[in-house]
């Protein structure tokens, strides 16, 4: 069964040329798909379409076994598909790490205490045990990326959408992130220009070209 199925997706920003032009794509459980493509080819846009932050002008999106069209549909999708932003500063906005990680679970209806427990557990799993009361804004770039990953994982998603996860990371942090992701059970879609990282992680590659997705043979 596929987790995501996209059929004939067309999308253009109001101000510009079409970004997606009849894109088809399916993601199955356990897959880790690398999404390649030139800058501005629409990879981030595709992610935003998959979780309903943008809506296609044409085409259907099926996620977790149901067609998704309305905001209400996508609320469910967002709980099950975690999106890691390219810039972690866009993702972190609470004063302390623990509050930021607990934010997602609380949106899913957890009580303060439950959300906190989930957050502590998630941070521990990522080796960020002493980070609870650190101030997010003052973390290093690498730490911010790991905390941002924790905020996503705390929602216990079935799919991870990772937008340039190794961008700007030093060698050690990159190795640490790679190891963490290798150990996760979730299906993933990864946008990255980091060939070595892709080689270690991806089970297949899909290229976004001219608004369509193609699997290189």
């Amino acid at each position: 069964m596929s987790l995501f199925r996209l059929e004939g997706i067309h999308f253009a920003y109001p101000s510009g040329a079409p970004v997606l032009n009849g894109a088809h794509f399916a993601l199955a459980a356990g897959e880790r798909v690398a999404l390649s493509g030139a800058n501005g080819s629409g990879k981030t846009t595709l992610f935003h379409l998959m979780v309903g932050l943008l809506r296609p002008q044409a085409g259907t999106i099926e996620a977790f076994g149901a067609p998704r069209a309305s905001e209400r549909d996508f609320k469910e999708v967002r709980a099950k598909a975690g999106l890691l932003f390219q810039d972690s500063d866009d993702q972190l906005f609470c004063p302390t790490v623990i509050e930021d990680v607990a934010f997602g679970p609380m949106n899913l209806g957890a009580s303060r205490a439950e959300a906190r427990a989930v957050a502590v557990r998630t941070l521990a799993e990522l080796g960020l045990t002493d980070f609870e009361d650190r101030i997010t804004h003052k973390l290093s770039g690498g730490q911010k990326r790991l905390v941002a990953l924790a905020t996503v994982l705390a929602m216990q998603p079935q799919v991870l959408l990772l937008d340039e996860p190794t961008n700007g990371l030093d060698h050690d942090t990159r190795a640490r992130l790679t190891a963490i992701l290798q150990g996760l059970p979730q299906a993933m879609m990864i946008v990255s220009h980091d060939g070595d990282f892709i080689a270690r992680l991806a089970t297949r590659t899909v290229a976004l070209e001219g608004g369509r997705l193609a699997s290189p043979l």
Partner: peptide
Amino acid sequence: RLRTAMKARAFTMGTNRHTWQSVGYLFGM
């Protein structure tokens, strides 16, 4: 951008303290 990221983490505006506090953090940040 921050609002989009919050939405991606299933945040919706409601009549509750969690909403007000979160938007407070958003503006503080």
